[in-house]
Design a protein around this nucleic acid. Structure first.
Lengths: 341, 341
DNA sequence: GTTAGCACTCATTTAATCCGAGTGCTAATC
DNA sequence: GATTAGCACTCGGATTAAATGAGTGCTAAC
């Protein structure tokens, strides 16, 4: 357990280092008006803090910087959440004042706003389409072999896929199937579609349509939604303005990661609900072991829809970013709730 | 007009500099087996070439590097197009062997392949949807106020947009409009839709539907397609591996550009047909004044559909990249031609 | 026209030195 | 016992100086 004074010193070091990116020395701390201890005292405390693993020293004659453990303690116990600035509130307000109808646009914009306000990289995972329910489905034949299958959800989201029509099945038959499906499946959440398709619809179809298995397999392929384009990045180049990444070698692997949508998806969809702070190696992805990732989920009625997040150096403005994510995620939740009503 | 020997020397300098990124000296050139002139002679020629503006010297005691004008002359007169390597052919072949049905996926993959094979950044503009013709349109009501409008083209492309339904117009009426539109507009190229809508359809509609102007305005908004998501990048971080961009300051503005989809769209859609090479400041965009951009359009029956391109340092492997783009653009053209048949 | 020779230039590398921020320890002080 | 003043010590970074060497331009000879 840390003494009050140790906490205060740790807190000052973290704050100072976040601001300046320079190791913090005992004199600097001592000179702060509200301290009232000499550098020597501070040094003793810092030495203890280092021994306990909260601080480290880049080299003997440098000041101290927080270790991962130090950041963790700071985030868990010492952090002061900052209120949003007038400007930030302004930006958020005007964002939600706009009447946007496209989910994709909203998400893209949210990402842009986050990266602009923080000067870090933002990563936003759009609302999961799975929990939406089927509003309408349709098949538009393109030619003899293929057709576009279209699914519309109650949230206004449209998924489409080009499918190959099983040979020798007349269009009329397919249309019959689609109209049966529409009658049976409208209102069903997408994630239940596949099981319903097999369990309840299959037998039903067999009455009206020959060779329904092939058709079902075709339709099933439509329901396999690809999540990959749910993810949006903004401010990727902000990574470069951080002094710790001034060296090209060190950013390269991070920027490479940004190209790997799939890894990002995996990383993000594994984030638990609420606000999460992952510091350095707490992240499962190697490329960002020198970064911190803060995420917040937005949800409707306890059901998490998607995730917004900020990636920056471990030396990140935790207080500010957490407040911002908290605020925005709640606003997004409200907005989607109204939207999906 | 350059003498044969000057051309040879310029060519060697460009090739060597492209390979090594180091200024090329007279001794290096002289030592090449097939030259047969002493360094002194080469120096005289280089001095002349510099005076003519084809070469420049980073500083007095350094070798020469090609100027923009030098690269231009090289590309216009000296370039040796390289045949694709076995490996490159292999990759392209297996790409086109896959049966992919989604335009978006094809384009994304094409971008990935380009950046992987070249180690530069690739930028790909997907097929213009404008030249496709309308296959089907539909309106799916979500609730009393809004609906999803869906357009399917003969190429299997689906555009959708959430629209607000003008107050007090019953669904039945809207459905009537849509069915009229379907009857009249199927087969019309998308770029003609808006004019047709006003000139031919307007008067027709007025017979059946009251307050058709509002409806037309609503439908028109659906036809305003946003091009912004036609563009795909890959290998953006490859910019960092170029020695000329080892300095973070210099890449920052380029990476920033990659976030500005809109500028990229403008840049790309202004590219003329065929293969284009823009060297350094020939590019209208400031951020890439130290880069070269090579683009190739792919087209069906003389009608250009989209553009594939490679962005790299001016010190780019022109011969290799041009061959690759040429090859891939033609393959894409064939593929889409068959696809759209 | 070509080339050998030579003086000259200048970025880059290496080494030597200095500087100062910061530490750890000890002894004196509160 | 906690705090602090004092001091020797450490070490990265900046500064300077010298050495290196790749490359040039010019001139005179071939």
């Amino acid at each position: 357990m840390l003494t009050q004074r140790q906490k205060m010193i740790l807190s000052i070091i973290v704050d100072d280092y976040i601001r300046s990116a320079e190791p913090v020395g005992s004199r600097t701390i001592s000179k702060r008006g509200d301290i009232g201890f000499s550098p020597a005292t501070i040094r003793n405390e810092m030495s203890d803090l280092e021994e306990m693993g909260f601080l480290e020293q880049p080299h003997t004659s440098a000041g101290r910087i927080p270790s991962h453990k130090g950041y963790r303690y700071y985030v868990d116990h010492l952090i002061k959440l900052e209120d949003l600035s007038r400007h930030e509130l302004e930006v958020l307000k005007s964002f939600f004042a706009e009447k946007i109808q496209e989910t994709e646009q909203v998400i893209q914009q949210a990402a842009t706003i986050l990266s602009n306000l923080t000067n870090y990289t933002s990563i936003v995972l759009g609302p999961e389409v799975f929990s939406a329910t089927l509003k309408h489905m349709q098949l538009v034949p393109l030619n003899d072999e293929s057709a576009v299958a279209i699914i519309v959800t109650n949230t206004g989201h449209v998924e489409n896929k080009v499918v190959t029509i099983p040979e020798g099945i007349p269009i009329s038959e397919i249309e019959k199937v689609v109209s049966i499906l529409n009658a049976k499946l409208v209102g069903v959440p997408l994630f239940q579609l596949r099981s319903k398709l097999y369990n309840e619809i299959g037998s039903e179809l067999s009455k009206y349509v020959s060779r329904y298995e092939e058709l079902i397999r075709m339709i099933e392929s439509v329901f396999e939604n690809d999540d990959d384009n749910r993810i949006f990045l903004s401010g990727t180049s902000n990574m470069l303005i951080q002094p710790e990444f001034r060296d090209v070698e060190k950013v390269k692997s991070i920027l490479d990661l940004f190209d790997e949508t799939h890894t990002l998806m995996r990383l993000f969809s594994s984030m638990p609900e609420g606000i999460q702070v992952k510091i350095g190696t707490e992240n499962s992805v190697d490329a960002i072991s020198n970064c911190s990732l803060i995420t917040a989920t937005y949800s409707i009625e306890g059901q998490s829809l998607g995730t917004i997040g900020i990636l920056g150096p471990t030396r990140m403005e935790y207080g500010k970013v957490i407040s911002l994510l908290d605020h925005l995620s709640k606003d997004l939740a409200v907005m989607f709730a109204r939207w999906y009503k």
